[in-house]
Amino acid sequence: MSVREAAPLSARAPVAQTSARDRRRRGGQWWVPWLFLAPALVLFLYFKFIPMARAVSMSVQEVRPYLGNTWVGGANYAEILSSDGFRSAAWNTVVLAVGQTFGSMVLGFGLALLVEGQTRKLTFIRSAAFLPVVVPLAVTAELWRIMYHPTSDGLMNQVIGLIGLGPSGFINDPHTSLASIAVTGIWRGAPYDMMIFLAGLAGIDRGLYEAATVDGASTWRRIVHVTLPGLRPVFAILFVLAAVRGFRTFTEVFLLTNGGPNGSTEVVMTLIYKLGLEQSRLGVGSAGAVLLFAATLVLTVCVQLLRRRRSA
């Protein structure tokens, strides 16, 4: 082999050795991220995934504490699906989820447009608007229960009285109780959606707004033709998050009405709680929990498939 032919080989040797060394270094540290994730994964495994697997197994059994469970197959699913109470609770859950999802997204989007900016005043306003998210849900429910006092002296009745409405029973009236809980959920969920919308607005190219302004587009047209298309991925993510949050509504319903009055606000989560812990029908309650999980999973998968099809 000539010197001219050997030179490139010697030049490539250090590069090959360096890349091999890098591969060994990266391969030897693959466990470092998992080491940091291990505590959280253990907690998720013990408090979430194992109970989920246990619920699936209990949904096909007649649970008899201290006596041993017996296999019943799909009898629990047939019982809960044929129950009028479950169908009513499922309908209330869907209505509440739809109302809270679109209400919180619309209000969150409006708040994001109002508080977008970098000034200190807007920073303070954003922090104040985000407070409902960090306040414990039990405290939020108690505050709204007080504001929903059905007499004319109640805070919400005084507010709607300014425009000539009321007094209303709110959570004490079967006709308005579900809408009242939806308002509470929207008030608490909108600031969370607002923060995600603000992150999405920061990623939109400002040159598009300048070009639209030069072309004479109004503020409404800039929102429709620039802002909304730029936030399309954000809307897809928020829709899934808000829908899952709506399907899993429990605490505010449990504390405000406990499913009343007359079952007008009974949702799947409160029904599962009553079946499993109050009536000791753990198998039927587990079947309802599995059905709720399946509905949430189907919704999430459908939204992701639609999102990929539109992006393709």
Rank of each mutant, 00 (worst) to 15 (best):
A53M: 12
V56C: 11
G85D: 06
V32D: 06
A89P: 00
S82G: 15
P39Y: 00
W71M: 11
P33N: 07
R87K: 14
S59V: 11
A40I: 13
S59Y: 10
A75M: 11
L41Y: 03
A90R: 09
A55H: 03
N69W: 08
A40L: 09
N76Y: 07
P65S: 08
W31K: 09
S57F: 03
K48G: 03
L41H: 02
E62S: 13
A78C: 03
K48F: 06
A38E: 05
K48Q: 07
S83A: 15
E62N: 14
S82N: 12
P33V: 09
V32Q: 06
L45R: 01
S88T: 14
P39H: 02
V42M: 01
V72Q: 02
F36W: 09
V56M: 13
G74E: 04
P39K: 05
V60R: 03
P51C: 06
W34F: 13
P39T: 12
L45T: 10
T70S: 13
F49H: 02
G68V: 15
V72S: 03
Q61K: 08
L37P: 01
W34R: 04
E79K: 11
S88G: 12
S83K: 11
V56R: 04
F49S: 01
Q61D: 07
N69V: 13
M52S: 09
R54Y: 04
R87H: 11
N69Q: 12
